[in-house]
Write a protein that binds this DNA or RNA. Structure first.
Length: 256
DNA sequence: ATGGTCGGCAACCGA
């Protein structure tokens, strides 16, 4: 089973490229973020014609998450139970005997912004959500654009960028609490190399060539699932060709 | 050089 996560920055613009990439990489389950489309305009037919079931929750202009998979979905939940308005940032689905949680964590804008407080609260609510709904022995995949670099090797200049909203002690501390609850970072289980990024800011000239990147996209698994993981890697083609997204996909392979 | 460029959507906001 091949699982992937990709922040598409508009699923409608990325549609032809995405369909091509899905088939060439034999992806069974793709978690998508920043679809930037209302549900009534989601291009579900195009994916269905290629054998993928679509689960999605979006809104006008911003955010939006989707799960495209070769499996029939069981129970679905959108957003946190107590805050369904966060639907365009969190989808939980029962797929192939696994629970998949696809998240698009708030970016945070600036540390003095109310949106940064929202990001910190959001990560706290996510931990409460996992604790309330699952046992750490359950087969759970937590996938998505987490808008944070976990370790110093996950960002191009850890000294200078420490304190940035995506690499801030208050943020990484909250992530580690979620990890401690019961998640394994599948990429780091298979690869300890530095400079392995999934995001390059396209406002910086030649960011990919200059290795000015961040690892912001993750596939996390509870221990029982992580033990079945045979590989996890970042897509070879940075930014997927001529119409770039800031992000590139991350892929995990599981023996199930 | 706190810049730069995308995408949505129709003026700027978010990243």
């Amino acid at each position: 089973m091949k699982i992937a996560s990709y922040n598409v920055n508009s699923i409608r613009v990325r549609l032809p490229l995405l369909l091509d990439w899905l088939s060439k990489n034999h992806i069974d389950l793709l978690c998508v973020q920043e679809t930037k489309v209302q549900d009534k305009d989601f291009p579900a037919e195009a994916f269905e014609q290629n054998g993928y079931n679509c689960i999605f929750k979006g809104q006008k202009s911003y955010n939006g998450v989707a799960i495209l998979s070769r499996y029939q979905a069981g129970q679905l939940h959108f957003g946190f139970e107590d805050e369904p308005t966060d639907g365009p940032r969190l989808i939980r689905a029962q797929l192939n005997a696994i629970t998949v949680v696809n998240t698009y964590v708030p970016q945070g804008v600036a540390t003095d912004s109310e949106k940064f407080r929202y990001k910190l609260r959001w990560l706290e609510r996510l931990l409460a959500f996992f604790k309330k709904n699952f046992d750490k022995k359950d087969p759970v995949l937590w996938v998505g654009d987490l808008n944070l670099a976990r370790l110093p090797i996950d960002v191009y200049d850890p000294e200078r960028l420490s304190g940035h909203v995506c690499y801030h002690p208050e943020v990484t501390r909250r992530l580690e609490k979620i990890m401690q609850w019961g998640f394994v970072d599948l990429f780091r289980q298979h690869c300890t190399e530095p400079r392995q990024y999934t995001f390059w800011d396209y406002r910086l000239p030649n960011a990919v060539k200059r290795h000015l990147g961040w690892r912001l996209d993750y596939i996390m698994a509870t221990k029982s699932l992580a033990d079945k993981s045979t590989n996890c890697y970042i897509d070879k083609q940075p930014r997927l060709a001529d119409r770039p997204s800031d992000h590139t996909p991350i892929i995990a392979e599981l023996k199930i």
